[in-house]
């Protein structure tokens, strides 16, 4: 469960990207953060992923208040999330499989178990035949699916995605959304930040509408 109370994020220089936002996302729910460019969607996702710390207010994820958590504890909290970025943040100096192995190496899994789980994740997103390919050789849709495989390989309780289909054609975007719906069906909390209103009709999520950092 994610509970935000009077959550505010002010950047140095005074820009308030998120202002006094309160909401609740229940476990296993699918939520959509919508809003125009600059509305504060990315900042809200980063706050939930504990990449950014709130300036004020509280943000409780799975019983832990991220606003007051020690910095040294944050990496362990982040492992409960599967993060998907708009620009994927894939590593182009290694294969698709090695990209998916990274979270498992961080978790300290044995090489054999890690490979088994990474291949299962690649299979889930339809990329197992391309496990040895360098991400640079993959299409935009495939790169995003690879990013999803990396996000889910550690079996996260919450999947956070920031504009995951922003640079994709309609067909690829639809395939990506199908994957999120699949994960939601098996009980994963899915939070998607997008400006694509068509998603609301497809998956009937809990919608958080942002405008200039405020929740409408």
């Amino acid at each position: 469960m994610i509970v935000a109370s009077n959550l505010t994020k002010r950047y140095p220089g005074g820009l308030e990207a998120v202002r006094d936002v309160s909401f609740t996302i229940k476990s296993g729910q699918m939520a959509l953060i919508s809003g125009h460019s600059g509305a504060g969607k990315t900042t809200l996702v980063k706050l939930m992923a504990s990449i950014e710390r709130p300036t004020s207010g509280s943000l409780v994820v799975n019983g832990q208040n991220l606003a007051t958590l020690r910095t040294s504890a944050l990496p362990y909290v982040r492992r409960h999330f599967g993060l998907i970025f708009q620009d994927q943040k894939l590593l182009f100096d290694r294969s698709a499989l090695d990209n998916v192995l990274l979270p498992l190496n961080i978790a300290g899994l044995s090489r054999r178990d890690a490979i088994r789980r990474a291949q299962a994740a690649l299979d889930k997103v339809g990329l197992l035949p391309r496990e040895k390919a360098n991400p640079i050789a993959l299409s935009g849709g495939e790169q995003q699916r690879l990013a999803i495989a990396r996000a889910v390989v550690n079996r996260p309780t919450v999947l956070l995605a920031d504009e995951p289909t922003a640079n994709l054609d309609a067909e690829s975007a639809s395939a990506i959304l199908d994957l999120f719906i699949d994960f939601h069906r098996v009980g994963v909390t899915v939070v998607l930040a997008t400006h694509d209103q068509s998603w609301i009709e497809r998956c009937h999520p809990n919608v958080l509408r942002l405008d200039h950092g405020r929740l409408l």
Partner: peptide, 9 residues
């Protein structure tokens, strides 16, 4: 950067 975001200490 990526490792930090996904939980590397």
């Amino acid at each position: 950067e990526v490792a930090r975001m996904i939980g590397a200490t």
